[in-house]
Design a protein around this nucleic acid. Structure first.
Lengths: 308, 308
DNA sequence: GCAAAAGTGTTCGTGATACACCCATGG
DNA sequence: CCATGGGTGTATCACGAACACTTTTGC
């Protein structure tokens, strides 16, 4: 390919960046169908080749003094003031050399959820940043369309719903709101009565004393998400030999070190220093560190009705 | 840090490598407790600083002409002849600059499962490659211990068991063998009768006509894993608006392109070319392309008994 | 025939679904 | 007092857990 010989190419450093799929729940506002919650996400218009003028996921380059998660935060903040309630690594995309002269190119993609209430601010000052509904995306640069589709599928299937859903609504919410979020995410109809019972039985919701009037009728009690007490005597704990369900292994505070060992081995991450995102250079978000365990435990997993 | 100023550091290309956690099920052999299945994994001794003499995950550098998955394959083959039946991206580890003069360091980690039968070959010719049981790991370089722990936890919790378990046993297996795999992975006792029924009801197993004698008593019928027919009329299909459960979005054939745009945006993956691992330079493994959908559907999810 | 594992039947309880019903509030 | 959504009660049914039981093989 006229770009040096193979051994030269192999020693070329790869290009790596971090991109974020940011999802928020919101209503249209202009449309009169405004009640229906939909998923929205902000995109950035490319101002240079390739794909100049097309829309792309917000992203940025790695920095040596930042965790991957911090890089994702930075990318997120380049498009919106909204504070993420959830941020998780999605997937790392890479592939064979067909771009930029044989350099390996890698995208580490995160996905983030921001709250519902704040999401009214879908207007951005920057004309090069714009929110789009999930079902009305423009033409996207690179393979970002696939990445978004993957993030949406993951949202709908892989992640535990109660955690995600409570992150998409505001800090304080009614069960009807949460119900709406579930239906928006799954696209299914969910029996509100059973939903209510199941959510309350899950022990992950905590009633604030307050009530809120949503429409012009009876006010509803509001709740807050509480991260699982776990210290309780739910039903008899057992002696689980291995499988400590108390530590969440997804951390980002450790860094990767790669000895380019010609013995084909040795590459790794330096030590066990773990910081959930509160170290140093983190920009001032008032949200909790969004570290969440990948554990199972979805009290609503079976709520989607089979037929109707 | 005496390595150039900040702006120089920021423009430094990151170091990226691919590592693999390889898991196999096997019995000790030396011990007389040899019947118990345990998880084993191969490690590589580091022959250079840092962490010289310690054990590490097999790994390698990125190459521009390989997918990430192919890089993982290559790392896998550096330690074992066994063919992977399952290969999936696990997580990408990265972190703040405390190594190698402020370069961002990233490890893209895959995990792989190899079959049970072949795993007898736990002896390797190379003294710098050795298999260790999951519960008897040596001191590990970098933070590879955490990575392995994460992979094990993911194996136990996050991935659908029937798929994983059928990958860990051989191509053809008895239900008792599969049952043993489940118990080894989960560490729980599972009722064999119910296990049998549930696995058979899942429709993912297909009986070969054959039988196999395991001990010195009645032979058992053998089965094969069949990837879900999906075309059947299981129980009344519904009209699911979105949520096509037929396409699997985890691909590795697309490559990441990162415009280092000063507008803080534009980074992406070139096109939608998708190759599951069968393109060109792939080394000769006779296994199927190990692409698996992340969909849910675990017919055994609730098999772990609550107490006994 | 006896041991041991393969394989089957059946009971019991939990929990999900569906849907009827009552309650609180504003007009 | 009526409309509307908040909130509760409850019958039905499917499925998982537990375990007794039958069948097949080797010795």
């Amino acid at each position: 390919m006229g770009l040096g010989n193979v051994s030269e190419r192999r020693s070329q450093p790869p290009q790596v960046g971090v991109s974020v799929v940011i999802l928020a729940l919101g209503t249209d506002g202009t449309n009169e169908d405004a009640n229906r919650n939909r998923l929205w996400l902000p995109l950035v218009r490319r101002v240079r080749q390739p794909f100049q003028g097309m829309w792309a996921l917000p992203g940025g380059n790695l920095r040596a003094d930042r965790t991957l998660e911090q890089a994702a935060y930075a990318a997120l903040e380049s498009t919106t003031d909204l504070h993420p309630r959830y941020l998780e690594q999605l997937y790392t995309f890479g592939g064979p050399a067909r771009s930029r002269g044989g350099l390996p190119m890698v995208s580490i993609v995160y996905w983030a959820l921001v709250g519902q209430a704040e999401a009214r601010a879908f207007k951005t000052g920057d004309v090069n940043v714009q929110w789009f509904p999930e079902d009305g995306l423009p033409g996207l640069a690179f393979d970002h369309r696939e990445i978004i589709d993957y993030a949406l599928q993951r949202l709908r299937t892989k992640i535990e719903y109660p955690l995600v859903a409570t992150r998409l609504v505001g800090e304080e919410f009614t069960l009807a709101q949460l119900h709406g979020v579930y239906e928006a995410i799954t696209g299914e109809t969910i029996d509100l009565a059973n939903f209510r019972r199941k959510m309350l039985a899950s022990g992950q919701l905590e009633g604030t004393g307050r009530k809120r009037r949503e429409g012009r009728h009876r006010p509803a009690a509001t709740y807050r998400y509480v991260p699982e007490e776990d210290g309780g005597d739910r039903h008899g704990q057992r002696d689980r030999g291995n499988d400590p369900n108390s530590h969440d292994p997804i951390r980002n505070g450790s860094e990767g070190v790669h000895g380019n060992g010609p013995d084909g081995t040795g590459m790794g991450n330096e030590t066990d220093n773990r910081a959930t995102h509160s170290d140093g250079t983190d920009p001032g978000t008032d949200t909790q560190p969004v570290s969440q365990r990948p554990a199972a435990e979805d009290p609503l997993a079976a709520l989607i009705p089979s037929r109707r």
